[in-house]
Design a protein around this nucleic acid. Structure first.
Lengths: 196, 196
DNA sequence: GTCTGAGCTGGACGTAGTGTCCAGCGCGTG
DNA sequence: CACGCGCTGGACACTACGTCCAGCTCAGAC
């Protein structure tokens, strides 16, 4: 308690008022302390840690993050740290609500209400290629700077999306990836050769 | 131009730097002016408004909002206003990227990682053909009883769904319709000949 | 600097799939 | 019965696909 208290308080302070930190004593199955409480629990309550048995802790002694729902409907994201010598369990419960609301607000502001009325895909697959390449661009930087690994990854995605089943797809993909048609087939062969 | 310019400029200024406003002359199919340009178009370029024909304008003369993807991967949300007397078309293209990034940031921060499945359509089009033919069968009776009109109708549906843009589609459609490949092309030619 | 290999390129080439054409055939109609 | 419409299977030219290869560039090793 004296050992871990400041760490818990620090986490709680950092994420206040959206996170609650609970320190448990697994030996006594009792709550040692709660910082910034909003789930109704208090020091001295039973821990009810049994539910954690289902989860496998990672090599670093961390469980989760995993989702939780409070009785009042609030959604939480939680992580649990297993502490040793002395044994303790630290749970951080983050109220996801405000973040989800903000994300929804931003999405609603900038996203079209009707993404795709009819999945007619003649003209659509063109956008699909641009879409896949585009999201990869956002994730990995400009196309010109890509290496073989990036191209392989994007091609794999396009291939498993079935893009190459449509006519004239290969040249278009080559254009979007800014490589030659030959290279597209070369990478594709490499991809499918290793897969099977 | 003198009439609508200030309105376009106002919209561009409000959303700057994330929105581009393009004023078109539909009669000449030419771009009259661009405020805050980022799509590379400039005054005097051809409008290429043909793509808008597919969309039905609302009662208020507004098309969209609808999604768009630039070649460099940026995602846009666009709305188009049809202006009368004098005729003009105003397009507002909002760069959705920053908003999506912010939303993704918030989501990633508070949400447990959740992989996103890509909708694949390779095997889908096969079912699509069977689906269209199947619903037509339910509506018009067994395939063997169909006359030219029925086949034309179903073919039109499949064609406008873009099925024939995918490889090996024609033989498969012929099989589903229980006609020869030649007939498929014959009917298709008839269909497209009358349309234009 | 030179060497070397990995990776991309443009072009050539064989093949699969596409789209057109036509003689032939069944079938309903005048 | 002759006629014509619509479908058929086959032939054909052509496009697009997928493979192959010599040559180029470039980065890293020596």
């Amino acid at each position: 308690m004296e050992r871990y208290g400041p760490a818990c308080a620090a986490v709680a302070a950092l994420l206040s008022p959206h996170a609650e930190v609970v320190l448990h004593d697994p030996a006594e199955d009792v709550v040692l302390a709660v910082w910034n409480p909003f789930s109704g629990r208090a020091a001295g309550d039973p821990s009810l840690l049994g539910e954690l048995d289902e989860l496998e802790p990672g090599a670093d002694g961390v469980l989760g993050p995993y989702p939780k729902v409070l009785a009042d409907g609030r959604t939480l994201t939680s992580v649990t740290a297993l502490l040793r010598e002395p044994d303790a369990v630290m749970c951080v419960n983050l109220d996801r609500g405000p973040f989800e609301q903000a994300a929804a607000l931003l999405s609603a502001f900038a996203a079209p209400a009707r993404p795709r009325p009819e999945p007619l895909f003649e003209h659509d697959w063109f956008d699909r290629v641009n879409g896949v390449v585009g999201s990869a661009v956002r994730q990995r930087g400009p196309v010109q700077r890509w290496g073989k690994a990036e191209r392989l990854a994007v091609l794999s995605e396009l291939d498993s999306a079935g893009v190459f089943a449509v006519r004239r797809a290969a040249p278009e993909v080559a254009r979007a990836l800014q490589v030659s048609r030959s290279t597209v087939y070369a990478l594709l062969a490499e991809l499918r050769g290793e897969k099977s």
